[in-house]
Design a protein around this nucleic acid. Sequence first.
DNA 1: ACAATACCTCGTGT
DNA 2: AACACGAGGTATT
Length: 341
Amino acid sequence: MGNSRRMCHRASLSACASLWRSIPCPRSELRLGYVLACGQSFRWNEWNPEYWTGVLDGRVWTLTQTDDHVWYTVYSKEEGASEEEDGFLNTTKRKRRQKDAEEKRMPCNPPKVIKTEEPEPEKEGRLVGVRVLRQDPTECLFAFICTSNNHISRITGMIERACSSLGRRLCQLDSVVYYTFPTLEALAAGDTKAKLQELGFGYRAKFVTESAQAILSEHGCDWLESLRLAPYEEARSALCALPGVGAKVADCVCLMALDKPQAVPVDTHVWKIAKRDYLPQLGAGNKSLTGRVYKEIGDYFRTLWGPYAGWAQSVLFCSELKKFQGSADRKKPVGKTEPQT
DNA sequence: ACAATACCTCGTGT
DNA sequence: AACACGAGGTATT
């Protein structure tokens, strides 16, 4: 096929300075490692230390940061890659889209938005720089449908395989091939359920395809994005009507894709923390995480932390996850791969 | 409303 | 080497 010049992950600001642009943003406002590798999204990888690469708005990006700037670079699509909808975008629209992507859709909240409150987790002095991503609603919804009764390492693999199988190829950097996240149409296709099952989705394959089909047939392809303008409770209950979407997944999508900073996803980690540190009475009688308890925890954090409770929850979760992963790392034996002769 | 169970899969740990 | 266990839950009884 076409002359595919081999591209590499860019991992140096100084080597090709003209390829990089920056946004003023101190580390105290945003730490890429906390935001991109704490279970909010599953498709960013730190292939080189401090350089994070992922797909955003149909392009491959690498991000890094210095003390007071976030730096980004965008890779061109490889020759011969199908241009799909780009075909009918005129130049103006295309430029606007590019500008929009670069300036407004960086994977962080506008740093100033969140200055108002001083939630408790921030006072503890650790995990400064956790932010909530503003993700694409489709990717966010279907990624989190995959998280139920699952663990992160498997979730990551599932999503990666789904993108390879159902997404559009963008380019290859070193040995890594990048794809877009599958469209609603691709997820709703007739043979998708079987494909996903082969890719190890288990019973979630059914949730994915049926949710995609329900959205397209009952609402339309722009519906998810339109929920950004709906009130929190309305968006939440609408999402909960989809197969495979319960309170927790709905709150994840509300918080991380639909501009609902008051949404507080209560997962096992947050539930554990809530019982241990905030609402010990919930632990008595080993009650399970019922709908009532779920709401009680969310309401408690909302009164404690105000309208950005969801962000504070992300800080909690990130801290718990770091601890969890840290202890797992310590337990992992080092260097037992090859017995020596 | 609440509790109990099954559910795909696949590291780990026993 | 077989087997149980649980992982950022949800749907069904």
